[in-house]
Simulated assay, not measured.
Amino acid sequence: MIGHESAEKAFLEAWQSGRLHHAWLLAGPQGMGKGAFAARAARFLATHGRGGDGQEVSLDDPGDAAAAKLVEAGNHPEILHLARQVKDKSKDLARNITIDQVRGIIRRLHLSLSLGDWRIIIVDAVDDLETDGANALLKTLEEPPARTLFLLVSHSPGRLLPTIRSRCRILRFQPVERDVMTTWLHDQRPMLDAAEVRAVAAASGGVPGKALLLIDSDVSAMEKKLLAIASSGDPGNRLREALAREVGGTSNRARLELVIDIVPVLLARLARDRPIAEIAPVLAQWDQVQRTMRDAIRGSYDGAMIGFAIGNCLAELARRERSAAR
């Protein structure tokens, strides 16, 4: 994994000292691999015992072989998970982690450990807890059972109950620097040309998971479609309507997120390539795109409508250029 070095160091130092805090909040943008870090930390605790002997280790050290096999098979009895569940007769996930799910985990905490020295509860993501579930979890965090450790994954820690945050030690997962991201992407996808890797690294905002999604979604092809709108103005709406169809609907949510990710970077690049006197119109559309995306994130929205609105912002650039030329 990339971008986990400081978090791993802090976690292992606490384990080595024998003073491992009972609750850890893994905070950072979605796509930083926080869930993967939680899984690594849980595996480590399940295979390495209490700690406190100061030995030098890494999260990926093998530890107890029998326990490791159980973890790899997903059958270790002391690693418990809380996450949104798939709805009945549907492939969609439920909106929240329910109070009943939390109560089921809490009942397990009253049982004696059956294997190893730790019971680990991974909540991915704690942002998804419904209100009653968050309050129930808080009570357990305030009076945790012995040898129980919580790993709470959060993409938006500022939205959590302050009392939950205050009970946790926070591990922050910061976006990766662009040069580090570029090198990593070259290693992950050596078949890509340098220009595309640089474009993906810039559009990803330093988030590795987002970078891989951008590559798999063919960012270069989408950029060409967006640039065609910005350069032509799309006088007959044909390109904007095609964009709306491509990103509309639940099945096309990944394409919509791709557009949302790359349009601000695309506009910033267009601004850099223009004379100073011509930058203002690009910045105005950049601001409009940001407002459009904020409105989209706040509520239930139609992807086709958002795609068309973003297309309008790009088409406006061409219209302003033609007006300035006259």
Rank of each mutant, 00 (worst) to 15 (best):
A94C: 05
I106A: 13
V86M: 15
I97M: 05
V102C: 05
L129T: 07
E78G: 01
H110R: 13
D100G: 10
R95T: 11
L93C: 02
I121L: 07
G116V: 10
I106E: 13
K87C: 02
D124M: 04
I105C: 05
S112C: 00
S90L: 10
D132T: 12
D92K: 15
T98W: 01
G133S: 06
H81A: 05
H110V: 08
L113M: 11
D100V: 12
W118D: 11
D127Q: 09
D128N: 00
D92F: 06
Q101Y: 03
P77C: 03
R107H: 14
L115A: 10
V123P: 00
I121E: 04
S90D: 13
P77V: 03
V126G: 07
A94N: 11
L82M: 11
S112T: 13
D88R: 04
I120A: 09
G133D: 05
I122S: 03
S114C: 12
D128R: 00
E130I: 08
S114P: 00
D117H: 09
K89D: 08
G104R: 07
D127C: 08
I120W: 06
L113W: 08
D124C: 02
V86Y: 07
G133W: 01
R119Q: 12
T131K: 14
I105S: 07
A125Q: 09
R103F: 10
D127T: 06
V123D: 06
K91I: 02
L93R: 01
Q101S: 06
R95I: 07
K89T: 00
R95P: 00
A83M: 08
I79S: 09
T131H: 12
S114R: 11
A83P: 00
T98S: 14
L129H: 09
D132L: 13
I121K: 03
R108W: 05
I79Y: 06
G133F: 03
D124S: 04
I120R: 10
D100I: 09
R95D: 10
H110K: 10
I79C: 10
D132Y: 09
R107E: 15
I121N: 02
I97V: 15
R119Y: 11
I121F: 04
H110S: 15
R84A: 03
V123G: 09
Q101N: 06
S112A: 15
R84H: 02
L113A: 07
D88P: 01
P77W: 03
D128A: 04
V123W: 08
D92V: 12
A83R: 15
K91E: 11
L109A: 09
I79W: 08
R108G: 12
R84N: 04
Q101M: 06
I122A: 06
